[in-house]
Nucleic acid binder design. Sequence first.
DNA 1: ATTACTGCAAAGGCTTTGCATTGTA
DNA 2: TACAATGCAAAGCCTTTGCAGTAAT
Lengths: 151, 151
Amino acid sequence: MPHLIDEAETLLHERGFKVTPQRTLLLQVLASQTAYLDADEIFRLAHSQDASISLATVYRTLKLFAELDIIEHRYVEPDHRREVFRLSAGPEQHYLTCIRCGSRTLIHADLLNRMVSELVRRKGVSVTSACACFTGYCPTCTEELRQRGEL
Amino acid sequence: MPHLIDEAETLLHERGFKVTPQRTLLLQVLASQTAYLDADEIFRLAHSQDASISLATVYRTLKLFAELDIIEHRYVEPDHRREVFRLSAGPEQHYLTCIRCGSRTLIHADLLNRMVSELVRRKGVSVTSACACFTGYCPTCTEELRQRGEL
DNA sequence: ATTACTGCAAAGGCTTTGCATTGTA
DNA sequence: TACAATGCAAAGCCTTTGCAGTAAT
């Protein structure tokens, strides 16, 4: 999505930040993926294009992008070891991680959104971001375990 | 809840683990709180009772307790910096953390449970644990910001 | 010409681990 | 008496930061 890259660069410029080759590269890397990537994955993808980029720059740039709402940053793994990032485009994605096979099942946004709406209505709060990570068994493993009577 | 402590100690014994003074102390500390505590808070509470206990033991014991389902371990802070722990008793608690005043608003379990039920029904998955951390504004801050037209 | 940005390396914060010692069963 | 559990200190992992040099505007 070159469109998102342009928008982001314009935003950087407007806010007085410089549009450096590193920032452009990181935007390209982010735009090339739809999944959430962790800092190291982003670093490696960027590094394969420009071996001089440093991990520190990746972290600093991701932090800046997050502050400017250019990217979302969340935790999706059950152990929450590392943060993951994705260009802000479309609804946030939430997953159930299978503790048997490790697969991730995408949870449709409307389920969470409905919950958030009700939360807002009932409690009078406002929600700017939601991090929901579910752990359990994916459909396949659930089915298998059920047939074996282990669930 | 001395009852829970006894149960936990029996479980340790049954599974071939030793019931040490440190483990008993940590059970007491956990039983004395209803909120989620991080490892350091637990260490400090334990340390005030027995200055010889080490942080390493706290971490090792918490890990063991979690494996035995004696405690829940989750992340509740928006930055997910540290894990928090609580005796397994009653439904998991989820919070919205206010980015203005830092307060935590408890989210009733039924809201999340309903979402999980629908998730299970729609996707055919099974859910063993859910980590939901919401970030936004608490009821008070939401109200204030609304009156100022800033929301 | 400014002043922000970068790379490097070191440090920070939380958690885990190796090892010799202690103590439960 | 065995062998698990502990305390200590060091290491691990992810992330942040100080600093001197570099480059965008």
